[in-house]
Nucleic acid binder design. Sequence first.
DNA 1: GACATGTTGACAATCATTCTCAAATAACCT
DNA 2: AGGTTATTTGAGAATGATTGTCAACATGTC
Lengths: 136, 136
Amino acid sequence: MTSTDATPPLPPLRPTRQRRAVVEAMASFADFRSAQEIHELLGERGEQVGLATVYRTLQRLADAGEVDVLRTEDGEAIYRRCSDSHHHHLVCRSCGATVEVEGPTVERWTSAIAAEHGYADVSHALEIFGTCPRCR
Amino acid sequence: MTSTDATPPLPPLRPTRQRRAVVEAMASFADFRSAQEIHELLGERGEQVGLATVYRTLQRLADAGEVDVLRTEDGEAIYRRCSDSHHHHLVCRSCGATVEVEGPTVERWTSAIAAEHGYADVSHALEIFGTCPRCR
DNA sequence: GACATGTTGACAATCATTCTCAAATAACCT
DNA sequence: AGGTTATTTGAGAATGATTGTCAACATGTC
């Protein structure tokens, strides 16, 4: 421990055309999209990027906290740029109608609970399900 | 609209050996397990049930609100009997250590939000992620 | 420019989950 | 009981998202 050997083993990360394209694509919408949808979007934009690369890049971005990841009810991963306002989803079990909700309550509670147990770098995912007015 | 033709098209549902076996298996543990794990468990118990049947039954139970379904971060569906005490999970991003937490705060907030938007039969899923003390 | 690495893409490989369909079995009716 | 019909089951094929493989490529550096 001679000096500042605290450098984490993080690889350099290069600004490639593909990487840029994915980031730009992510900037072009505000909702959650699947990797495949994003891949398509890139195609339409004329940016040819391999599907595997899209997956890899999305993962990197997620690890880096640049994007949020969620799972649809059937297990598909969906991504969104992270994020102006952190919010949650109120989803209708019957018709799928979604309302975005947010509030400091949950944020505070989760932080408190996590701190209480000594957890750091806290994040959370909350989904609320119910039957919407139109489906009652 | 002559009379009470309000009967929904729900099929009968039969109490088969397999169905019973799955329900019993679900009663035998309190945490979340994957369909495959449950299938194994059944095998160990000497109850031979096809994997597809396990999936089908689990789905039925979930639809009926008999079990809770969640998704692991890698998209696997996990099930648990629904449920003595409703609680959430505080999961370590690094080592996976899990703490079960609960509290009226979130319950209240979600109910309030849902009501506010006219949603009924509310339920929710909340997962908190962070880095646990041992992994810091 | 030449080199050492991080990256990419095409395609194969995984893996959970769903589908298919003939055989087994409840529930019913007589 | 015997016969009839709608469900359910199981084995294996099929699907579909995601990840792994590996040779060809692109970047940053000297």
